[in-house]
């Protein structure tokens, strides 16, 4: 699964073709923060793909004789259960890794979805203008006034939550920010000479939008997208905690943490240790996002 790698290389691939994008990612890459964040995320991603096979422990197999084992990291006798086991004797380490994989998958896919939906709406609003643009942007403003978490809880609470519905709800929640940026980029690019030249040469509106304008949207919003992946992962865990996230037996951080709360006093590690792994991966993602943001600000201010 090459999910997490989508975060950056997808960006660099676009960047190679264009000026602003190249310098943005190159500049971000030169900072230590970005490299540290990237290393953390890449490392955890590799671990989540190969880890379960290395230890040969199943994330869903019960083993009642081995329940409530303390983390092997603290008590060597409990190896190979690095993070210990839960109330049913399931290995927490492999459960956490599968949870991380699911969280990353949901986070990345929903952010890509928000990006596509938001960009499409924003580009149309900016390019077509007129009353279409007005209606679309009013819609965007209105969405900002909708209590999204309430909507998400309601939708997922009264229907049967699946990864797909969760991703759709996240997309519904997050697209307006992208639409706003896409619109302002389109408005400024539309008047540029190269767009007029393309038009005179006979390029269709669709081609102008997709080939010429679309690549300009990524640089100003790349950092928001990266930070949003982390936000969505937290949100996914919270939904799982309430019980309206991805349903068992698939392990997610939310369900692992919720299971552990019942045993918080005698088996503290069930809740805390997997959460630490989640926090670590979020830290990696946020470092990357922060580095991207500062590089963008430097480029905007014309420093260097």
């Amino acid at each position: 699964m090459a999910i997490g790698t989508d975060i950056d290389p997808a960006g660099t691939a676009v960047a190679r073709k264009r000026g602003p994008g190249t310098s943005l990612f190159a500049k971000a890459w030169r900072t230590a923060d970005f490299k540290i964040g990237f290393a953390i995320v890449l490392g955890l991603l590799l671990l989540s793909v190969i880890g379960p096979y290395l230890l040969n422990l199943s994330p869903t197999q019960f083993n009642v004789s081995k329940k409530f084992l303390e983390p092997g990291l603290l008590d060597g006798a409990n190896m190979p259960y690095l993070f210990g086991t839960d109330q049913l004797g399931r290995d927490l380490f492999s459960r956490s890794l599968i949870g991380l994989r699911n969280a990353l998958f949901i986070g990345v896919v929903s952010v890509i979805g928000m990006f596509i939906v938001g960009s499409a709406i924003g580009m149309i609003a900016g390019y077509v203008g007129g009353w279409v643009g007005l209606v679309l942007m009013r819609l965007t403003d209105a969405q900002m006034s909708i209590p999204v978490v309430i909507l998400a809880i309601t939708i997922l609470g009264v229907t049967r939550p699946t990864p797909l519905t969760i991703i759709l709800v996240f997309i519904l929640a997050g697209w307006p920010a992208y639409a706003r940026v896409a619109r302002s980029v389109t408005l400024s690019e539309r008047r540029r000479e190269y767009v007029r030249a393309a038009k005179i040469l006979g390029a269709s509106d669709l081609r102008i939008l997709l080939v010429h304008i679309a690549p300009n949207i990524l640089p100003p919003i790349a950092f928001v997208a990266v930070l949003d992946v982390a936000k969505m992962m937290i949100f996914e865990a919270a939904l799982g905690f309430i019980g309206i996230g991805v349903q068992p037996p698939t392990p997610t951080f939310g369900t692992i943490i919720a299971d552990g709360t019942k045993y918080l006093m005698n088996a503290w590690w069930i809740t805390t240790v997997p959460g630490l792994l989640l926090a670590l991966s979020l830290c990696g993602i946020n470092f990357m996002g922060g580095a991207l943001e500062r590089s963008r600000n430097k480029i905007l201010q014309g420093v260097e």
């Binding site: 982390a230 992962m233 937290i234 865990a237 919270a238 905690f241 951080f253 939310g254 943490i257 552990g260 709360t261 918080l264 809740t271 805390t272 959460g275 989640l278 926090a279 670590l280 979020l282 830290c283 993602i285 946020n286």
Partner: peptide, 9 residues
């Protein structure tokens, strides 16, 4: 980076 529910617990 601290997940709110985890921090709470």
């Amino acid at each position: 980076s601290l997940p709110n529910i985890w921090l709470a617990l």
